[in-house]
Amino acid sequence: MREQLEKIKLEALEEIKEATNSQRIDEIRVKYLGKKGSLTTILRGMGSLSPEERPIIGKLANEVREFIEEEINNALSNIKNKERELKIKGEYIDITMPGKKVEIGGIHPLNKVLDEIKDIFFGMGFSIAEGPEVELDYYNFEALNVPKNHPARDEQDTFYISENLVLRTQTSPIQVRTMEKTKPPIRIIAPGRVYRSDAVDATHSPIFYQIEGLVVDKGITMANLKGTLETFAKRFFGEKTRTKFRPHHFPFTEPSAEMDVSCFVCGGEGCRVCKGSGWIEILGCGMVHPDVLTKGGIDPEEYSGFAFGMGLDRIVMIKYGIDDIRLLYENDIRFLKQF
């Protein structure tokens, strides 16, 4: 019996080795370990053994059974691995074929850049204010120290709706409107459409966008103005951006300045975009004129503030290298798809 067991073990091993698919392994399992399998048959004949031999042969038979089971399991997992590998090999696809897309649209470049600018100012604690586009002459001009017949009115060709109603020529009327509604501290930006009766050409549009900014609080200084706008410039144009503040004049700020940024196209070396100067004029700014604070119901002896305004269209055009402002308002889909 001992020999029989050894023989079964060897035979089974031989057959397992030769098996190439899982079906054959199953057959082998049945042949040796099944109810009518050879090993089972032998165990049934154990009754004829002496009581001394029975535990020894029993133990041996179990060992053989465990051995065959293990071999079968090993073989099975090998074969499964092979079969899986084979399956995988047959399933190669051309991964360079195009993906299945849902067509996605896009935000207009003006709003895309505006969103970016808004995010930067959010990060600095600014909220967004809004105001009417058909504006009272009072807010657009008079409250900003530009009375009727002021020469500055000639510089901004104004569309009139009536004697006292204009299409706002700038976003600055939001300054006094905001001050009337809000107690300091004030920290807002106000983007929006503005209107000037310019004839249309590659650099002029009768409608364009400005972004106004206003900060009013106790102890606001010109150093704060520089700090805020410099931070904006670095976040928007890149950390290496340098800024230059030049004195200027606006009726509603005092002192007033214009801010240039180092050309982000050439880095300040001089190129076509910056007309060789290495600098690009970006915005006008200044400390809020005490008259304007007063008109907004804020005591200039207690509070001070700064304001700034920039043209969005110009920034968008420079940023994307767009050479004709009309493209922004014409909305050719091939243009819009580029942003």
Binding site: G125, S127, P185, K218, T221, A223, N224, K226, G227, T228
Partner: peptide
């Protein structure tokens, strides 16, 4: 003129 961050109480921006 130096550049300085705005001091004073934080303003809620939303």
């Amino acid at each position: 003129i130096p550049t300085e961050k705005i001091k004073g109480e934080a303003v809620e921006a939303a």
